[in-house]
Design a protein around this nucleic acid. Structure first.
Lengths: 121, 121
DNA sequence: GAGGTGTATTACTACGCATAGTACACCAAA
DNA sequence: TTTGGTGTACTATGCGTAGTAATACACCTC
């Protein structure tokens, strides 16, 4: 559920943040669903509890989850539109870069149409 | 010509790499065009010569430029198709991520059509 | 009380980016 | 030949961030 890439240059806590957010957007994790405990998830992933804690704190700061001391962490009431905007964040940047590199909108659209999932790497 | 953002979290040498490649793709820098000298560009940008050197060495490794000791660095013979593939690298990643986050291709295409340059930040 | 939860703190290590300084080999032009 | 510019190489250092390690505390449930 929370696959992360330890060898990636993207920080672990950031991967956890994104993954959780992604699952929330997709609806896999619904409101009030309890997340794995800080220590439990850390053990599962083979990372330090502090790292998981950091991800959870960022998620709470941004209103994606809420944490209750002594109880656990849970998915918060979700504003779908706001979350969707987040989902477009990296996409917009990439589009901007491509356009600056003199790639036309039509080319980008064509590329999306022909896009096969699993191209990566 | 070589605007870079010193406060960005993207390494300077990587910004230089991308910027040079972008200019090569756009045709602003044509084959055999001489690039600024390592020391000269470093002074202009207010960075260390080693940093510029690193960018140039990566560019040479990837066949974007060629360097001649005692002379300078120049834009190499360009395989436009290959360079174009590079231009799509980040874009493809972003599309992949968006699709994984259950955003439809149609939504992405619509977003590109409505995209206004200068959205960023 | 025991054991689970989130939270906070301090110290430490590891790594990559960047700087600083120096040195060498090469080439072109005065 | 000398001078000054070029790329290249090397070592050392500083610095910020990520991550680990080890505690400790407060809270809740059973």
């Amino acid at each position: 559920m929370f696959n992360i890439d330890l060898s990636s240059r993207v920080p672990i806590y950031e991967q956890l943040y994104k993954k959780t957010l992604e699952l929330a957007i997709k609806g896999v994790l619904k409101e009030n669903t309890q997340l794995p405990s800080v220590r439990g998830l850390a053990k599962d992933l083979g990372v330090n509890p502090n790292t998981v804690s950091k991800a959870y704190q960022l998620l709470e700061r941004d209103g994606i989850i809420y944490s209750v001391s002594g109880i656990g962490s849970f998915i918060a009431k979700i504003n779908t539109n706001a979350l969707m905007e987040y989902a477009f964040e990296d996409f917009d940047k990439a589009v901007e870069e491509a356009l600056k590199a003199s790639v036309s909108k039509e080319e980008l659209i064509e590329r999306i149409k022909n896009f096969k999932v699993g191209n990566g790497l």
